[in-house]
């Protein structure tokens, strides 16, 4: 019997719509579209090697895996490093999602030197008194820094603001379409 795994890159045929969950990433080949919804302070990191026809989209919640270790049973401790389900390990954090996604893309045939990045999300919708705030902004900074570390050029961004975004990433063209609750779709 075929065992279902999170490696959704292996059985993609043409013109498929692949859903990326929260704290999740997926790889797709040309002809497919990667979608993810409901980015608030989360960031969507869209990577593509258009020549190879390989694209990847990550939906990360928090900036750094190592920064968030502040409690028992919480994110970042022994249990926090394991995905709670079939989502790829490390997909919850920007600094681990990016290398994980790059690796999956290379396995699918992407060439690291051709991969370009687009970034969306990281908004500041609320000001909470309890949190130390600015998770959205910190997610954006972490994404930019991590992409730089891995020498991936960031070609376009749509970040910040005080509204949510849903994304649709065309694996053929590398175009990232951004939808808000109100107003026109925006393509970067």
């Amino acid at each position: 019997m075929k065992v279902y795994s999170s490696d959704r890159s292996t059985d993609q045929s043409s013109s498929k719509r692949i859903k990326v969950g929260v704290a999740d990433y997926a790889v797709a080949e040309a002809g497919s579209t990667l979608v993810t919804s409901g980015l608030g302070s989360c960031v969507g990191i869209a990577l593509a090697d258009v020549d190879a026809g390989v694209a990847g989209l990550a939906h990360a919640m928090l900036p750094y895996a190592s920064d968030e270790q502040d409690g028992d049973g919480g994110a970042g401790d022994a249990t926090g490093d394991e995905p709670t389900d079939d989502r790829p390990a490390g997909a919850k954090y920007v600094n681990t999602a990016i290398p994980g996604l790059l690796h999956s893309m290379e396995e699918t045939g992407a060439d690291r030197s051709r991969i370009e990045a687009r970034l969306a999300g990281g908004s500041a919708m609320f000001e909470f008194s309890s949190g130390d705030g600015g998770v959205g902004e910190r997610n954006v900074v972490a994404a930019k820094t991590t992409l730089e570390t891995y020498d991936v050029p960031l070609v376009a961004t749509d970040v910040g603001g005080d509204y949510g975004r849903s994304l649709s990433f065309d694996a053929t063209t590398g175009e990232l379409s951004i939808r808000r609750a109100h107003g026109e779709n925006h393509v970067i």
Binding site: E68, G74, F126, V135
Partner: peptide, 13 residues
């Protein structure tokens, strides 16, 4: 709800 959950995610899985 994403930013609400993100605040919680800093300390709980």
């Amino acid at each position: 709800v994403d930013p609400l959950v993100t605040e919680l995610a800093r300390t709980q899985d």
